[in-house]
Amino acid sequence: MLARLASPRTGGLLALAVVIALLPLALTNKYFYDIAVLVGLNAIVCVGLNLLIGYAGQISLGHAGFFGLGAYGSAILASRYGWPPLAAMLTTTLAVAALAYLVGRPILRLKGHYLAMATLGLGVIIFMVITTEDKYTGGPDGIAVVPLSIGGFVLQGERIWYWVVGALLLVAVWLALNLIESPAGRALRALHSSEVGAEVVGINAAEHKVMAFVISAVFASVAGSLAAHYSGFVTPGKVAFLHSIELVTMVVFGGMASTFGAVVGAAVLTTLPQLLAAFEDYEMMLFGAVMMGTMIFMPRGVVPSLARLFQSRRQQPSSGEGSGT
């Protein structure tokens, strides 16, 4: 029992829960809560995306598309057609999962940069449809979304949302960690090192890649639905190519193949623009410089690089590479 608690997996989850529980002490007003909620939502997407990028080794430059489909699906069904928000979210999530499964099969046959291109193309197509079909989506100006209500209880205000998103983030991380430790997760990691090698030992590469793709799409879609209800408004900016890039950056920044890295990446890159806002004209330049600098000096991402540093201080590096699971 004690050993289990001390394992990095449970220990990390516990640490995250403590951080979420204690953070409100530092959140002195609604604006800080708002940033925390945005961090949480981005973190959910990144934890999912990390399964695809970090573990299965497949890149996606189109995940904002899934996030956007989730957001717009909820917005259109709940706000335009008056569906109960939860039913709208569930339907949307299932639809996104089905879509990801359908396109995932052919797309994931592509390798490396071609996969990047194909996912980028998918994202662009989703973006074009959403901006053009303004009858349903409100076009580039966006669409207002009703608040999330569950059986008469309306979820409104930053503080309630903070706890809801915090809890969901814990669930997402828990799911991801379990998946990674499962046989399927080991198969994924085998894929990452060598796809052919994995096939040789009998792993159905295609099926596992599609599974990671669908799961990451579902995480993005759910976060998108939640973001839409929370903000009360969606615009196509959240579906755009640049948002996809932002999401990938968060994952890589925090540390690929590190679930907690994904959370840290989301936290840093969501709050950074807020901190840099003080630099006015230099904001954009500094943001780019921080991105470049971090990746140059910590090419494995913040969390694994720091974990390694910490480990090597404590003891001589042992065999193998310390992964920051």
């Binding site: 007003n29 609604k30 604006y31 800080f32 708002d34 940033i35 945005l38 966006g142 903000s231 408004f233 969606v234 615009t235 900016g237 959240k238 623009p273 807020q274 806002a277 006015e280 904001e283």
Partner: peptide, 21 residues
């Protein structure tokens, strides 16, 4: 004054900052 860069989400967050902070 904040730069919302044409992004509705940023505009929303900065408005919260203007009001609350």
């Amino acid at each position: 004054a904040y730069d919302s860069a044409g992004d509705a989400e940023k505009a929303r967050t900065f408005t919260k900052r203007l009001i609350e902070q």
